[in-house]
Amino acid sequence: MTTNDKDIVLHVADVHKTFGGLHALSDIDLQVEQGKTHAIIGPNGAGKSTLLNVCVGRLAPTSGAVIFDGHTLTGKKPHEINQVGVARVFQTPEIFPELSVLHNVMVPAFAKRDGSFSLNFMRHLDTQSDIRSEAESVLEDVGLVAQKDVHAGSLSRGDKRRMELAMCLIQHPRLLLLDEPTAGMSRHDTNTTIDLLKRIKERGMTKIIIEHDMHVVFSLADKISVLAQGRIIAEGSPEEVRANPKVQEAYLGGAH
């Protein structure tokens, strides 16, 4: 590695995960650099989602550790991991369908400002103008400000995803995990999302992306790790990975 330790934001160190007899992840060692977009690709069942779940505390690794910015994330609860600056976009949008779009985006801002628990019930929502205007500006960013008063549940799938992204962005996370951010989107929506993610990158936010769509991966990633059968079989810049014969074999092998 040419980078020194202080540029590494997330270090997945020697992680193993077994489900019964199945080795979902073996010898995973991953280093994500500050401000970079790191893509994890691989055929179905390669362990990509398992890896992401280990990073956010949804699954505990069988052995190994995940270290984020000096904090050991292993064994921490999801809300503790969020509070140190890790936000996550899910494969199927996880939103608050009954609340308005604006409120969906304001809720995460309260977690950021008041911590994981606060009995802030003597304040009125209408006096939280700082958070409201911040939410509006984030919605402006993702192009949803016109729909801020509609029920989030009535948004299209693509808009739900963009709103979920806004819910993460308002927290200014140090690390953003994106699980197939464009799955099920039209080509037009996919391109809008790519543009949006490129803009976030300019703000120096570190991102991990899991994606099937190679168009998305090669437009965004600074570095790619290829996962197959629970192991990292290749790692490098998009050009290196594209040229790697092992990768081509894994993809062909996975498809047939």
């Binding site: 956010v56 609860k77 999801p78 809300h79 969020n82 509070q83 936000a87 996550r88 899910f90 996880e94 939103i95 608050f96 369908p97 009954e98 609340l99 809720v107 995460p108 977690a111 950021k112 994981s116 628990f117 819910m167 927290q171």
Partner: peptide, 14 residues
């Protein structure tokens, strides 16, 4: 009430 899972990943200790 709406989505407890999202609340966990949003940093709330529910």
């Amino acid at each position: 009430k709406s989505n407890q899972n999202r609340m966990d990943y949003t940093g709330f200790n529910t």
